[in-house]
């Protein structure tokens, strides 16, 4: 189908974009890379009266390291993330995840800010933000707000962004030496939205985890930081029995949906498989993958 008619405004500055949003509120939609918004408009799932195109706002584009923080502009495209040496060095989890986001032609247009604002619970980057402990930087009528990723995602396609807000940047703590990551997802086809996925950022201490952040996605209305499972696995010697207990805790932390791809039971099972693979990979313990945990 074709999108219904709308008015179009090309924002000339950040201030101009915020003015347009302040005036038009929820009648307007922000156009960034358009790789989620335009399909939704073509399917007539959304019919905004006004499109505010922020594509020309160069100040929202780019990746920089400021001290211990990696700052990613909202308009930074997936393709830019994939090619960035800053990302590989400071947030390798993100580099691993972006390779799973859609296909080359989509990654050439889609932006990190757009993906986070869209907040599709089956998409990769929101879960990465949870695992990385990122901060989402938002400008609105009242000035700038900084929202922890854990607070930002509130429901299916829902975030703390109000109709007059613009997501301007993402701040990610630079990965500390000795940290490690794991990213894997189940999808019917490479580049599809996940059936279930896991983005994990950890600190190891010998054969244990000093810190473990497990960001699951496609397991409910929002990406989920599996805190109960992580708490059980932090600081402890990882045995197959402990993994089994943590897996049980994980299953009760998730609230997956049924759709044409999988039942909730299948999604819980796949999440447990990913947890076992994550631990086995990061601790180099193949025994954990065949243990009772799965």
């Amino acid at each position: 189908m074709k999108a219904s008619a709308f008015a179009y405004a090309r924002a000339t500055s950040l201030a101009n974009a915020l003015e347009l949003l302040a005036t038009h509120g929820d009648k307007a939609k922000v156009l960034s890379g358009g790789q989620s918004l335009i399909p939704a408009m073509n399917l007539r799932l959304v019919s905004p009266e006004l499109i505010v195109d922020i594509g020309d706002l160069g100040e929202l584009r780019g990746i920089a390291v400021k001290g211990e923080t990696l700052v990613i502009g909202a308009l930074t495209r997936h393709a830019d993330l994939l090619k960035s040496s800053h990302i590989v060095k400071c947030a390798p989890l993100l580099a691993a995840a972006v390779a799973h986001v859609a296909h080359p032609a989509i990654r050439n247009r889609g932006t990190i800010g757009g993906s986070l604002a869209q907040a599709d619970p089956a998409s990769e980057l929101p879960a990465c933000m949870l695992a990385l402990g990122a901060t989402i930087v938002v400008r609105g009528k009242g000035g700038e707000r900084r929202i922890a990723a854990e607070e930002f995602f509130t429901g299916i396609y829902e975030t703390k962004l109000g109709p007059q807000d613009l997501l301007v940047a993402i701040e990610v703590p630079v990965a500390s030496p000795g940290s490690a990551h794991f990213f894997q997802e189940f999808a019917r086809r490479h580049g599809d939205y996940a059936i279930v996925g896991l983005a994990a950022q950890v600190m190891r201490q010998g054969d244990r985890f000093a810190d473990l952040r497990l960001g699951f996605f496609a397991v409910g209305d929002t990406p989920v930081l599996a805190k109960a499972a992580a708490a059980m696995l932090t600081g402890a010697a990882i045995t197959p029995e402990l993994l089994a207990e943590a897996s049980a805790a994980l299953a009760s932390e998730l609230n997956p949906h049924e759709d044409q791809q999988a039942t909730p039971a299948m999604r819980r099972h796949l999440a447990r498989v990913l947890l076992a693979r994550c631990l086995a990979t990061l601790l180099n313990r193949p025994d954990l993958q065949t243990g009772a945990g799965v």
């Binding site: 074709k2 156009l31 358009g34 399909p39 195109d53 594509g55 032609a105 989509i106 050439n108 247009r109």
Partner: peptide
């Protein structure tokens, strides 16, 4: 498909491939 799934509308913009069904002509 007109929603970015099938790839039949792939063109180059500024030397990079994109879905032309997911870009507005005004862009």
């Amino acid at each position: 498909c007109e929603h970015g799934v099938c790839g039949a509308c792939t063109v180059r913009v500024g030397g990079e491939i994109v879905r032309s069904c997911l870009m507005l002509a005004v862009q």
